[in-house]
Amino acid sequence: MAAGNGPWMGAGLTEVGGAVLEVRDLACLRVERAVIAGLSFRVAAGSAVLLTGANGAGKSTLLRLLAGLLRPAEGAILWRGEDVAADPGAHAARLRYLAHQDAVKPALTVAENLDFFARLWGGDVAPALAALGLEALAELPGRVLSSGQKRRLALARLALAPAPLWLLDEPTTGLDAASVERLRPLLAAHRAAGGIVLAATHIPLPIEDAEELRL
C-alpha cells in the first residue's frame, strides 16, 4: 500500500503496478461539510488496511464511498486502473460490505437469512454457518438472536463465496473473544487468495501485519 498523504506515507510502499485498489484525491461532503478531503492511497492484493481515527473522522463514510453507496464529491476510486463508477454492477460483484447494521430479518430463520445471500452470490449456507459457529442456531428466527449472534450471522456472509474486496465497518462489535478468533482463518484465507480487507475498527482485529490508515 502506498500513501499519497499523511504520516504513514512510504510505509509498505507498493509499486503502482502492484496496486489493485487505488483511491485518488478523494473528497466527500456530508451536509455541506467535508468529511474526507484530498485522500489518496493504494492497496495491493492480499493487503489489510485498518482505518482508525476518532468518531466522525470519516471511516464509515470512506467505506460507503468504496462500496459505491456514496458518490465522491471529487476524486476517483480505481480498481486495476479503471474507475469503479464506470461499471457499478461489476464493482458490486467484487465486494462484500459489512455495515453497522446486520441486515438480519427477524422473521426469517438464520439459515433463510443467509440463504438469500447465497442465492445472490453462490456458495453454500452450511459451511458458512459453521465457519462462524452458528450451526446450532440455523433454524432459529432472527428475532431471538443476541446482538453478537446477529453480528456473526452478518459475518457469515463473508464466508459464503469469495469476493476480492472486503469492506468491514466495526466487524467485531458485540462479539466475544472466541468469535473474534473465528475471524482469523477467514481473514487469512481471504488474503492468501489475493483479497483485500479494509476494516474500520477501534478494537485490534485477529489479522497479521495490517497497515494503518489514520483518518
Partner: peptide
C-alpha cells in the same frame, strides 16, 4: 433501510 438490508441490496449487484 432500518435494518441495513437496503444497503446490502444496493451492493448486491442487482440493478
Amino acid at each position: 433501510a432500518e435494518d441495513g438490508t437496503l444497503d446490502q441490496l444496493l451492493v448486491s449487484g442487482l440493478p
